[in-house]
Design a protein around this nucleic acid. Sequence first.
DNA 1: GTCTATAGACTGATAGAC
DNA 2: GTCTATCAGTCTATAGAC
Lengths: 215, 215
Amino acid sequence: MTTINTGARGPYKTGRKRQREIIDAAITVFGNRGYGGSTIKEIAGAAGVTPAAVLRYFSKEQLLTEVLRDWDQHQGFVDGAGPGLAFFRALRELMEYHIAHRDHLELYLTFATEASDAQHPAHDFMYMRYRRSLTKMRRRLTEAIDLGEVPFMDEATVAYEIECLHAILDGVEMQWLLNPDVDLVGVVGQYVDRAISRWSAGTTLQEPIPRIPVW
Amino acid sequence: MTTINTGARGPYKTGRKRQREIIDAAITVFGNRGYGGSTIKEIAGAAGVTPAAVLRYFSKEQLLTEVLRDWDQHQGFVDGAGPGLAFFRALRELMEYHIAHRDHLELYLTFATEASDAQHPAHDFMYMRYRRSLTKMRRRLTEAIDLGEVPFMDEATVAYEIECLHAILDGVEMQWLLNPDVDLVGVVGQYVDRAISRWSAGTTLQEPIPRIPVW
DNA sequence: GTCTATAGACTGATAGAC
DNA sequence: GTCTATCAGTCTATAGAC
């Protein structure tokens, strides 16, 4: 978005560092208060600068864009964990990553709910993010079938299984944010283990219902 | 909170009706923008009155209290659906209720995420609401065991099953808010059916892990 | 590159006309 | 009971000193 050199040397060095600090602060504040509830002043305070220093680089809406872009990049975390079932086994580590990066998780869930309104500036982004996430997970499960790790499942069952899994992830993450005593890794991990053994046993087909992926 | 007569007759009649309209408007706006992101002006606009008319009855924080109280009352919806497994079978109808009352659901999920910050004015309320919800559901499952509808499960397994179920509800609701094409009733209903038959088969004990309810 | 000062609009809330 | 008018405070954003 900005045309500042990414080389991070010379007179731009300090500026680039400031920008990172500001974006990190914005991630925290947006995650806490939501987009509408956040103020430049609070973001500036969290970054240890004045509001004017923040607005030197970003308008509030630019800050939203930068924050979403930054968060989206970090989401690629488990992409290398595939193929097939290995991806799902790595979800435990993803939960550990979330625990270590609470701000990112808070941002994601706050926006996912706040942006359900079509008018919200992050609505389209969150919709597409969700769509990509579900598509990726469906592909991983299909991959596991193709690799022979798991018996055949029709497309509707794959879609349903992934919708449930994604819902579990989001739901337990929500519980953990509200109450950190919740065993995020344990609950998710056990669900994944059970899902994998259910898939492997081929018992998922007992009650197929017509459903096509809607994302 | 207010000392206005609940009889809704005489000179108070119009006022009580206005108050309801304002609270309904606040539910919608809070659900869309979050608490911090909402303004009295927008709430007033949604209710079809001026900001001053809103502030005649409620401060912004009073409005939050009223909205949460109102939402909490409507949450008793499925309480009469028990005992035992009948409660879980009624979750399908709860989802239909949510579809018919999107605003209430949006409010719940927006606050559940926004209020994860301990500083949020609705934090304690949401924490307690979640706690009560999980406790109630655990009690229903224990009830089903006592009634002989379901074989014995230890306390840790009950807690885990309910955490997963609650997470599924929240997670699929989130998906539906972002994408109304999601089959909220179908996905949740099928999960519940499968959970019940899993509980009934007594296969849930295969992998007990030590866990105590943390809510 | 960051600051102070400030503009102009909007915030929650109050007072008083009708 | 609801309005207009208005308060002091805060919001995003800009201009210019250093």
